[in-house]
Computed example of a mutant assay.
Amino acid sequence: MLQKKFEKVVLENYPDALDTRDTSIRYLGLLQNGHDIDISKMLMATSLCSDDINIPSTSFFSVVWGPFFLGGLGGLPYAGLTGLTAFAHHIPDHGTAFIFYGPHIGVTLENEVGKMYRPGQGNAGACCGALMLALERFKDDTYTPELKREDYQQTYLESLLFPRKDEILNDKLPQRKITECTFELIDKMLHESLREVKNEFKVDKIALLGGIVINTDFGIDDYFSVRNFEVIRTTYL
């Protein structure tokens, strides 16, 4: 019953979303049956936010190897070219690379977007915390991001999003808009990095599944709204 209530809220904001269990079944099936990929020889990398709440969102892909963690705050692939190269070198012989990526956003049964009730907490808190913090800082007209060594990931995330500050703040739902903008950043960064290190991949295919992870509540399946699904032949990168 609670799952159905959450589904109603999720679909109001992300009409195309599937729960993560159905996401894994659908897209692993497409990889296996539509692209002739042996998923038993597939290594998954993730570029998701380091938030602990995202761990269940990847557990439904337990039939593949991994994950190799590329992401940090907001889901940006902070592991960079070195991390992506390491991932390339870890793929099973005659296997396939699979990258699951994107930012995340919470929802509550009260239809609060950008918040969730975390396990053991009585009050709803920000989710994604890094993106909601950036959003709050952007509301201050005097604020300009400054890279800080001691807070590199957050300040780098904000510096990349800052050029779209007005677009984000003027949207009817800024919490959702900043999440969409972050997906576009992650997607662009991953594709650029893959082209940089393409010769490190000794496999024929790289599968990408990107979108928005939608966090719900403890014991309730999360959801995923797909923005990109593709299988790239490494020779075409």
Results as ranks from 00 to 15, higher is better:
His191Cys: 03
Gly29Lys: 11
Tyr14Gln: 10
Ser159Thr: 04
Gly83Ile: 14
Gly75Tyr: 02
Thr155Phe: 08
Ser59Thr: 09
Phe100Thr: 02
Lys198Gln: 14
Glu112Arg: 15
Lys205Arg: 12
Tyr223Arg: 03
Thr142Lys: 11
Val10Pro: 05
Leu43Met: 12
Leu73Ala: 13
Glu136Pro: 00
Arg118Leu: 14
Gly125His: 07
Ala17Lys: 04
Ile55Arg: 12
Gly74Ser: 09
Leu2Asn: 12
Met132Glu: 13
Pro15Lys: 13
Met44Ile: 02
Leu18Val: 06
Gly129Met: 13
Asn123Trp: 06
Leu160Ile: 06
Val10Ala: 07
Asn228Cys: 05
Leu18His: 05
Lys139Gln: 15
Tyr236Pro: 01
Ile37Arg: 02
Phe229Lys: 09
Leu169Glu: 04
Lys172Ile: 14
Ser159His: 03
Gly72Asn: 09
Cys49Ile: 08
Thr96Glu: 02
Gln175Leu: 08
Asn199His: 13
Ser159Leu: 03
Asn54Ala: 05
Thr23Ser: 10
Ser24Arg: 04
Leu185Cys: 10
Gly74His: 10
Lys115Tyr: 15
Asp38Tyr: 08
Tyr152Thr: 06
Ser24His: 07
Asp51Gln: 02
Tyr143Met: 11
Val213Cys: 04
Glu112Lys: 15
Gly210Cys: 07
Asn54His: 08
Lys115Gly: 07
Phe100Arg: 00
Asn215Lys: 15
Tyr152Cys: 07
Ile214His: 01
Gly106Asp: 05
Arg227Leu: 06
Ala124Cys: 04
Phe138Asp: 02
Ile25Lys: 14
Ala207Asn: 05
Gln153Ala: 14
Asp204Glu: 15
Arg21Leu: 10
Ala207Val: 08
Leu48Pro: 03
Ala17Met: 05
His191Ala: 09
Asp141Thr: 11
Gly75Val: 05
Ala45Val: 07
Glu180Trp: 02
Phe69Pro: 02
Glu196Phe: 11
Leu109Trp: 14
Ile212Asn: 00
Arg176His: 06
Gly66Pro: 03
Glu150Ser: 11
Glu7Cys: 09
Glu112Pro: 00
Ser57Cys: 02
Ala124Arg: 05
Gln153Asp: 12
Val10Thr: 05
Ala86Val: 14
Asp166Tyr: 11
Val63Phe: 08
Val64Glu: 02
Asn228Ala: 08
Asp19Thr: 09
Ile212Ala: 00
